[in-house]
């Protein structure tokens, strides 16, 4: 278990932690708009750390580049989708007050 492996395992572990945090957030947070945060955390931080960890283990620069491209695309699409979903929810007059999560 070289230092490199240790580092990559550490970052993969924290990446997975953010994913789990995202899922837990998705379940416990009261309102659609607050759940947005859970989703974006999992995307940006979770996948980012995961990609970092796997990048350390990758055997060629091409693979690292591909991992980064994947992460970038996920960032891009999750930002856009969250914006659009939130906006359409707003347009439909989704309740903004806490606790009123019923349509």
């Amino acid at each position: 278990m070289t230092l490199l492996d240790g580092l990559s395992l550490l970052s993969i572990a924290s990446g997975c932690f953010f994913f789990v945090a995202g899922s837990v957030g998705m379940l416990r947070l009261p309102d659609a708009f607050t759940r947005l945060h859970a989703l974006t955390k999992a995307d940006s931080a979770g996948l980012g750390l995961l990609v970092l960890g796997l990048g350390l283990q990758a055997d060629s620069w091409w693979t690292v580049l591909r991992l980064l491209l994947i992460w970038l695309l996920v960032l891009l699409s999750s930002a856009t989708t969250c914006h659009l979903i939130a906006q359409s929810a707003l347009r439909r007059g989704a309740a903004l007050r806490r606790g009123d999560n019923d349509e």
């Binding site: 998705m26 989703l39 996948l47 996920v74 999750s78």
Partner: peptide, 28 residues
């Protein structure tokens, strides 16, 4: 875990958000 939100999610927005989360977890 995220799947539970799709099942119980009261509004369509929640379900779509959960689907996004599952998509990213799938990539992971």
């Amino acid at each position: 875990g995220g799947l539970v939100r799709i099942l119980i999610g009261p509004t369509a927005t929640d379900r779509m958000l959960a689907a996004q989360l599952l998509g990213t977890s799938g990539v992971g």
